[in-house]
Computed example of a mutant assay.
Amino acid sequence: MNFQRGKKHEDLEMNLVPLIDVLLVIIIFLVVSSTFARMSELQINLPTADANSPEQKPLVIDVGVDAKGHYVISKTALTDGSVSAIGAALQSAAGNGKEPTIIINADANATHQSVINVMEAARQVGYTHITFATQTGGNR
């Protein structure tokens, strides 16, 4: 029932001024408290050491695999492509070096098994650092 026939209802408006006032107070509080947090940091001067940088480079063994399954280890061609022969060649290429990095340069058309043979031979002789050489896509 509408007893006030002649009066129209006014649209309600939300007053944003008090909201803006509260937000400004919060911003001021955050700015003041953040400057105090910086004051509590410790000023530490770390000591320096005059250590010699290591002059020896890490040992790298390059293994090449062509599309026909032939192997070249450190510029020496292998006649036998078995896993044991590849492992022996890796050990001779490493010499007395410990933890060499083996870089496998496999032809794009080389079989998957040829690459797996090199990885298995490296695992059998205890070399765990293996990486693959690739080309960027624009060199085709």
Rank of each mutant, 00 (worst) to 15 (best):
E41F: 15
A88P: 03
V25Y: 09
S33H: 07
G6M: 11
L12A: 08
A93G: 04
Q56V: 13
D66S: 05
P54M: 05
Q124A: 14
S82D: 10
D62I: 00
F29Y: 10
G81W: 05
I73H: 00
L23C: 15
R123P: 05
T131Y: 03
N15M: 06
T111N: 05
V63R: 00
P47K: 01
N109C: 04
I28N: 10
K8R: 08
D11C: 12
A67V: 15
L59H: 05
V83K: 05
K75C: 05
V83H: 03
I44P: 09
T136S: 12
T79V: 08
P18K: 00
I28G: 10
Q91C: 07
G95I: 02
V32M: 08
T101N: 00
Y71R: 03
I28A: 13
N139S: 13
P100A: 02
S53C: 05
V17D: 09
V63I: 11
L90R: 01
I103F: 09
L16D: 11
A121L: 04
S84C: 06
D66C: 06
K68G: 15
D21F: 15
I28M: 11
T76M: 06
Q91G: 10
K68Q: 15
P54I: 08
K57G: 01
G87S: 06
Q135C: 11
A77P: 06
S114G: 09
D107L: 01
G6C: 10
V72E: 04
P100I: 00
L12Q: 08
E120H: 06
S84H: 08
N15R: 04
T48I: 05
K98Y: 02
D66H: 04
A110F: 04
A67N: 10
P18R: 01
K7F: 11
K68L: 13
T35W: 07
G87F: 02
T128Y: 10
V65Q: 00
Q4E: 12
D21I: 14
M14Y: 15
E55C: 10
D50L: 12
V31K: 04
T35P: 07
H129P: 01
V65E: 01
T48V: 13
Q43R: 06
G87L: 01
N109M: 06
